[in-house]
């Protein structure tokens, strides 16, 4: 490997990594948190069988799961302005990623709630608790434990999906590496480097997941 390439790789590593800390991580964490709240709500209205909200929830999940994420980004960022609604790139990305995560995670949470035996709810009723009380104190804690591994999966997926934000002008890690590659013509090395940085982030998350799962097991 020649000296020039080494210099490019070393200086770009810091630049891309820092952009990850500044953009990719916040984008992931904010979107995932909002997405989870949305998912919990979407799952519960379906399990609790609340009529209109349930249909609405099904419709939402149907639309989001049935269309590509990158198309959703384009609709919100490039499409909405023609209707007079203009969003900055970062809020637009947060919006799309949260809604997208919400749809997928709601299915995970719904399945986890339904996997809790019906007897748990009945036992709650029999000691005098209401549906909401039993849901909050008994069913959801059990369901979230079940949902934890697949939700961690979604989180790791989202870290990588944020690279699509490059297509709506956000200078996250992938876009930075594209720019450096265009400037230096070292495409292969740069794209491998950014892949490696995504891998580092995801590896850290995987380790965290393992630790949390162990903690959940002990409880």
């Amino acid at each position: 490997m020649n000296e020039r390439l080494m210099d490019i790789l070393i200086s770009s590593f810091g630049e891309i990594f820092m952009q990850g800390i500044k953009i990719t991580i916040p984008l992931t964490i904010i979107s995932f948190t909002l997405g989870l709240i949305l998912a919990l709500f979407t799952a519960i209205v379906q399990v609790a069988n609340i009529r209109i909200l349930k249909s609405l929830a099904r419709f939402y999940v149907w639309i989001i799961r049935g269309t590509p994420l990158i198309v959703q980004l384009f609709v919100i960022f490039y499409g909405l302005p023609s209707l007079g609604i203009i969003l900055d790139a970062f809020p637009a990305a947060i919006l799309v990623f949260s809604i997208n995560t919400g749809a997928y995670a709601s299915e995970t949470i719904r399945a986890a709630i339904e996997s809790v035996p019906k007897g748990q709810l009945e036992a709650g009723y029999c000691v005098g608790m209401s549906y909401v009380q039993t849901m909050r104190r008994i069913i959801l804690p059990q369901a979230l434990k079940t949902a934890f591994p697949p939700l961690s999966n979604s989180l790791i997926g989202l870290v990588k999906d944020t690279s699509l934000a490059a297509s709506i002008t956000i200078t996250e890690m992938f876009q930075v590496s594209q720019r450096i590659a265009a400037r230096t013509y070292e495409t292969f090395a740069l794209y491998c480097e950014v892949a490696l940085i995504y891998l580092i982030f995801c590896t850290v998350l995987t380790k965290l997941q393992t630790i949390c799962e162990k903690k959940l097991q002990i409880e």
Binding site: Q120, V127, K145
Partner: peptide
């Protein structure tokens, strides 16, 4: 009060 065949203790 109700006692169930399969106990139905709160598992958490």
């Amino acid at each position: 009060a109700f006692v169930f065949q399969n106990y139905n203790l709160f598992r958490n």
